[in-house]
């Protein structure tokens, strides 16, 4: 392609139209393929919310891929075919703009992003109906149950999720306490998230669920797991020295298994629960307390079931 001679041609520039159509087609096929592939980049989908998030992600990967490949293809094309020769000191085509084109590349992106935004609002509403999130202010020394209204559509719960520096504690309606979160599959579980010190975040990647936990408030949240398995719960809001150790398992099991576990746990005496931070802090003290300052970890929670942290997780 030579771009130096803009000789006025008669009729339609058939060759150019063909090349552009072919390139667009290839890009389109590639983008659709990327959009389909992109779902595999996410952890297994284990909640009713996950397919909505994945669908939206896949859609945006497709659109994004189309734009990226289109633009980068254009840049490469220009760099390959519009290069100046070594001693060519002339200027390029003195085009100062094209109002119609400029309006088009303002209006079309506007329409695309607004369509995306309103579709996302729609998805947001869907997600809210699957698991509403409501934040209630908590006065000093007030119990979460006193202020948080439970989700009317819940099957189980409210399960109290207590986050600390750096451990998790789960309290079930019948008073059972555990270090790992057990949930029955296909039942809508309601949580009351609270923190005893700093910000934490309740993040289960397989559920596509992240909710910050704010000291001084309680957040009511619901989710329905759809797949049995062992998943990671990760603190996703930086919470201090042993932030990265503040993780535990979420065990999604059948309704019967869950009931059995609950019954068995209720008969077990309270023991010291999972707190990897406490172990790490003890090791640090044993080595002479080197490193920069940190608050000491909160005492491990006293739980009926400290869980099995060494079990491998699915996602």
């Amino acid at each position: 392609m030579t771009s130096t001679s803009p000789s006025p041609r008669q009729g339609l520039p058939i060759r150019r139209i063909l090349v552009i159509s072919l390139a667009t087609l290839v890009n389109l096929v590639l983008s659709i393929w990327m959009a389909q592939w992109s779902v595999d980049w996410l952890p297994v989908a284990a909640s009713t919310a996950a397919p909505y998030v994945d669908g939206l992600f896949s859609l945006e990967v497709g659109i994004g891929c189309f734009i990226f490949v289109g633009c980068v293809g254009f840049i490469l094309w220009s760099v390959l075919f519009s290069r100046a020769d070594k001693y060519d000191e002339s200027d390029g085509l003195p085009i100062e703009g094209n109002t119609r084109l400029e309006i088009a590349w303002t209006v079309i992106p506007f329409v695309v992003v607004m369509a995306l935004a309103f579709y996302s609002i729609h998805v947001n509403e869907q997600l809210a109906s699957l698991g509403p999130k409501t934040k209630y202010d908590l006065a000093v020394d007030q119990q979460p149950d006193a202020v948080a209204a439970a989700d009317n559509l819940k099957d189980i719960g409210p399960i109290r999720v207590i986050s600390r520096q750096w451990s998790w504690e789960f309290v079930y309606p019948d008073g059972v306490r555990s270090s790992e979160l057990h949930l029955p599959v296909s039942q809508r579980a309601n949580f009351q998230l609270s923190s005893e010190d700093v910000l934490h975040s309740f993040y289960v990647p397989a559920f596509r669920l992240k909710q910050d936990i704010i000291p001084g408030s309680v957040i009511s949240y619901s989710i329905t797991p759809t797949r049995e398995g062992t998943y990671r719960l990760r603190d996703a809001m930086f919470s201090g020295a042993y932030f990265s150790s503040n993780q535990t398992h979420v065990i999604v099991e059948s309704g019967e298994a869950y009931d059995q576990w609950l019954k068995k746990a209720a008969s077990q005496p309270l023991v010291s629960g999972l707190s990897q931070a406490t172990e790490l802090y003890q090791q640090r003290l044993a080595k002479g307390d080197r490193g920069w300052a940190t608050v000491p970890p909160a005492a491990p929670p006293m739980v009926n079931d400290p869980g099995h942290p060494d079990v491998l997780h699915d996602a």
Binding site: S3, P6, F74, S82, R83, A84, S90, L93, I95, L101
Partner: peptide, 11 residues
């Protein structure tokens, strides 16, 4: 991108 089009590009 429009500026690159039909230019005399020097890398």
């Amino acid at each position: 991108l429009g500026t690159l089009w039909g230019g005399k590009i020097r890398l």
